[in-house]
């Protein structure tokens, strides 16, 4: 697949979808994202059902740090933009620039994860644990599942960045980076709802 393109040192436009393998991965990944939507919705539904079951412990309005969560939201939103820039660099054939933007995305993701861990430790110290109330269980399951997705995304992108740190863009690695960036956007999609439904509605509604 695509050997002719390799030999001449040029790639077709949209290298991520130039091969059958790339197109298959693209299709299968969107199928996976449709399933992920259902997974996260089940956790959101559970959280919304259980969020008032605080069992005398801390409530959402008692403990949530809105300014911290606001900063986390900005960081994740920016990381979504940097992975968009990475994909634009890829489509222009600028592999080096793509790698730099992907590293920036990873750095922002790590910052986000660090703040989330700090947040969880703080809430635990204030008496909200996984087993303290139904609200606690639902909260840590939902937000923790998202955090696990962020951690997996970071690991995935770092693996790709190390694996392809030398050499250039090929029809093999273009789909891999493209899917990793789709996954990263999806993490941000979920976070928009967590920010709104868990944090803002926890404080304001």
């Amino acid at each position: 697949m695509g050997h002719a393109a390799h030999n001449t040192g040029t790639l077709p436009p949209n290298p991520e979808k130039a091969t059958l393998e790339g197109r298959n991965k693209f299709l299968a990944f969107w199928f996976f994202l449709g399933g992920e939507t259902v997974l996260f919705a089940s956790l959101f539904g559970t959280y919304l059902g259980l969020r008032n079951g605080t069992a005398g412990g801390p409530t959402a309005a008692d403990i949530f740090h809105l300014p911290l969560v606001f900063i986390m939201t900005m960081i994740l939103l920016t990381s979504s933009l940097t992975s968009v820039f990475a994909m634009l660099a890829m489509k222009k054939g600028n592999f080096k620039q793509m790698l730099v933007w992907m590293w920036v995305t990873v750095a922002l993701g790590v910052t986000f994860l660090g703040l989330e861990i700090y947040e969880f430790i703080d809430y635990t110290n204030q008496g909200l644990t996984f087993t303290s109330s139904a609200f606690g269980s639902a909260f840590y399951t939902l937000v923790g599942f998202h955090g696990a997705h962020v951690a997996f995304g970071i690991g995935w992108i770092i693996t790709l960045l190390i694996r392809y740190r030398k050499g250039g863009l090929t029809l093999t690695n273009a789909p891999k980076f493209y899917l990793a960036s789709l996954y990263w956007h999806f993490i941000d999609v979920v976070w928009v709802f967590i920010f709104t439904v868990v944090y803002l509605m926890g404080i304001g509604g």
Partner: peptide, 11 residues
């Protein structure tokens, strides 16, 4: 093109 590892995308 000194770096043959950097293929160009035909745009």
């Amino acid at each position: 093109n000194l770096n043959t590892n950097q293929p160009k995308v035909n745009l």
